[in-house]
Design a protein around this nucleic acid. Structure first.
Lengths: 244, 244
DNA sequence: GGGGAGCTGTCGGGAAGCTGTCGCCGGACT
DNA sequence: AGTCCGGCGACAGCTTCCCGACAGCTCCCC
């Protein structure tokens, strides 16, 4: 059966404390909501000043920080955070074609960045990775597993049994989402909403297509590997062993 | 894994507070009535302005929001709700072929949506799901059980004893309704009204048919599994163990 | 900066599965 | 015994899903 502690990578006792800083309230709230669904505690700030204030009183474990802020911008916020002595890890958000090169220099020390518009699953994955790295030397690998299918989130290696699979980025993301939620059944809309960038307007049959491609790679075994991705007709897809 | 009593819905102490926003009074009232029948507190609003006012004073736990509203539309209401700082979860209603593309992306924030015309039980099921998820990180499974029949609402797996049943969407919905109401006797009209879309014009013997198909799947055991769905002649059906 | 390889999403045909109607039959109540 | 009600086989229309083919795009390498 699937081993799936929802937040197995995190500290099992304390909830992760997340501060989201973005001047676009819908985006900030979106991130906060998704984080809360994962069981985290999340607070939002819409300006740089606000962010510093929240950080001072909330003591977050990790910060999501938009670089394009009115007033004190993201870099300013970061500087002042560091000046106040906190080493809290930060994941930056930036517009495409934005200041990507300047950001690149900042992503040392466990930090990371993501280009807008992003997919929520990818953001959450990066947050988990950064947290895991900053948690200390005793960071254990994060390996998702269902049956004989394993996904190592550090090396991005996916195996069916001993066979190493070669997945495209989209396939990888869809499979990771299925793995993380297994054995829950997901609708195509859920998959689309979590794995694709917000604002993606495509028809949901891209999901069918990616699943179709995934199935071929997962099951193209030389001799009968039982299918792992199951269709729940009229509802969605599940990843799980046998059954149904 | 938490095993729920069939009707012990959400917080056992506090009643769920629901705000229904739809410019079509019959629809809004229908939803409110069903919710009250479940023991919830429900308030309706027929315009966007009204909705914001009601939300401010009523402090709902969850909102059902039609997107096609005169004046301030659903998205506007959502924006202003969020702007006022409330993170109350929302389930949207939308016309088929309507703004479906703009709606895409709503489930990502944990909210959900439903296409009109919808089935009442499906709406209630989604509301319960959203409430359960937003209630906290320890999202416990919801498993319905009567005798040796179990239904896991996350994995959509239905078992009779150890045997896994393969149900179509309609069968699944009818069985869920019977399970949730067990051991209450339901009329065919009730089942029709709750499980089929409102406005469905079919003869009520579709219910007989689905029940018939369900019975075959539930009881098609190799050796006598006692029937679970009982006919109350001249009245309706019940799901319960033995007796009568 | 030009060419190529791989990735992504659209379209649409075809197959499979699901749903509801019809209508006959059998059992139950009067 | 008659009448009514529920059970259910069979079928047709419809929805949903799968996936081959293709075109635009990006990224990388030369």
């Amino acid at each position: 059966m699937a081993v799936r502690e929802p937040c197995s990578t995190m500290s099992p006792v304390e909830k992760v404390r997340l501060l989201v800083v973005d001047d676009d309230p819908p985006i900030a709230d979106l991130v906060a909501t998704v984080a809360r669904y994962e069981g985290w505690e999340a607070v939002t700030a819409y300006t740089g000043e606000d962010a510093l204030e929240r950080a001072a009183e909330f003591h977050p474990d990790i910060v999501v920080l938009d670089l394009m802020l009115p007033g004190v911008d993201g870099f300013g916020v970061l500087d002042r955070l560091r000046a106040s002595g906190t080493m809290v890890p930060v994941v930056f958000l930036t517009a495409r074609d934005g200041v990507a090169d300047r950001v690149a220099g900042l992503t040392r020390g466990g930090d990371d960045y993501l280009v807008k518009p992003f997919a929520v699953e990818e953001l959450m994955a990066r947050l988990r990775t950064v947290l895991r790295r900053s948690a200390g030397p005793a960071f254990q690998r994060s390996v998702l597993r269902v049956g004989d299918l394993t996904m190592d989130e550090d090396t991005r290696q996916v195996r069916r049994g001993a066979r190493l699979l070669s997945l495209t980025p989209t396939e990888y993301e869809v499979l990771r989402y299925l793995l993380r939620k297994s054995p829950t059944v997901l609708t195509k809309a859920q998959i689309l909403d979590h794995v694709w960038e917000y604002g993606f307007g495509g028809r949901s049959n891209v999901v069918e297509l990616v699943v179709s491609r995934l199935r071929r790679k997962l099951d193209e075994t030389d001799e009968g590997g039982a299918p792992l991705i199951h269709t729940v007709r009229g509802f969605g897809y599940v990843l799980r062993q046998a059954a149904e």
